[in-house]
Design a protein around this nucleic acid. Structure first.
Lengths: 202, 202
DNA sequence: ACCCATCATTATGGACGCAAGATCGTTTTT
DNA sequence: AAAAACGATCTTGCGTCCATAATGATGGGT
């Protein structure tokens, strides 16, 4: 393999992965702090201790980096939510309830994650819009799979209902991120669970 | 008054209002079509048949124009929704149902409005974020006022519930805007009304 | 009183500086 | 010698400003 040679004790792949990782962590903080539009590539490179050129060896541009940061947040959240659902008792209602609780507590555990996932996603171009839609689909899929077979509802109807659930939870978290006095997490969870239970008839 | 003089049959105020109006209509189409980030001020001026300088006599920048476009959309929607609620029978459930129906049908009557209100708002800077929050508050206020006195629910709880409703409807409309085969409006209305009825106990 | 020259006001288009993205060459480090 | 950092460079779009053209008011000559 033409794998270059070692440098500072790392192989070429390790160096690339290391720079990518530093850019991701820097972007995680800067995008959530100053915001996507206010964060220049220069600042990202400075925060990650990386040269201008190296940036474009890791990502094609600012949007691409934003996409990577967002995808990581979504993946982590999907994993932990799926885990919480799997550990809950095998009752659809309780499992969804556990999933909602885990989503809200996990996402708000790091305010940067909540802000990126619910506010800054929509700042970048249309590529990000598509990625957000993909994430929304992933979450609706989790809901529908957990529900299992639901009585007498058309599948499309169920899908729209799941979409509404995702939108409701998102708006509650936007409120948590933006409000001067954010509402207690327990209230958010209670509200989301309430909407879910009533809407799906549990 | 130092009101300038007439020019092409219009007073100074009329000319300013005319340019402002042309910029608003041009932005209404361009922001909804190519998107906020892809629409340069140069294109806006060309579409509105207006000089570069005149632009900054009407708006402080691209974000300011976006804010004006968004505010107009929200105001029109608020008015027509309030009117529909006022004309509905004085039953809270039916009034909210009429409001939801009017919101979805009115907003989707012009795809540009739906796209601007639910997608492009979030593209601009933090100023727009604040404006969107204001609009969300306006809609939750309409919901809460229409509900009137609700049995045994804490007010904060009701507010979070209204927020969830707004978020659910928004996500449904995002689906309508972005999906390759948008769901029928009747399904969206049915879903939103269902979530509302169940969540508020009607 | 009418008409045309002249001037003031208004609008347009382009020129300019600036900031940031993206690419490339040079120097420094390993 | 390979690899990374740094700076230089080009492009684009924002925001400001100036020179030019278009329009309306003013005044003198007939």
């Amino acid at each position: 393999m033409a794998t270059g040679r070692d440098y500072r004790g790392m192989t070429a792949e390790q160096r690339l992965a290391d720079r990518r990782e530093r850019l991701l962590t820097a972007a995680y903080t800067l995008f959530a702090g100053a915001g996507f539009t206010a964060t220049t590539i220069e600042r990202l490179c400075a925060a990650a201790r990386i040269s201008n050129r190296a940036f474009y060896e890791c990502f094609t541009g600012r949007e691409d980096l934003m996409r990577a940061v967002y995808d990581r947040c979504v993946q982590e959240t999907l994993l932990t939510v799926a885990k919480a659902i799997g550990e809950a008792p095998p009752d659809p209602a309780r499992r969804i309830q556990a999933g909602i609780r885990e989503y809200i507590t996990f996402v708000t555990r790091d305010a940067r994650r909540a802000r990126i996932m619910h506010l800054e996603v929509r700042r970048a171009g249309d590529i990000l819009t598509g990625h957000r839609q993909r994430a929304v689909t992933d979450f609706t899929t989790i809901i529908e799979e957990t529900l299992g077979d639901l009585p007498e509802d058309l599948p499309e109807w169920t899908h729209l209902l799941s979409l509404g659930m995702v939108g409701a939870i998102q708006e509650l978290l936007i409120e948590w991120v933006l409000a001067d006095v954010p509402p207690p997490l327990e209230n958010l969870i209670e509200t989301a669970v309430h909407i879910f239970r009533r809407s799906f008839g549990y």
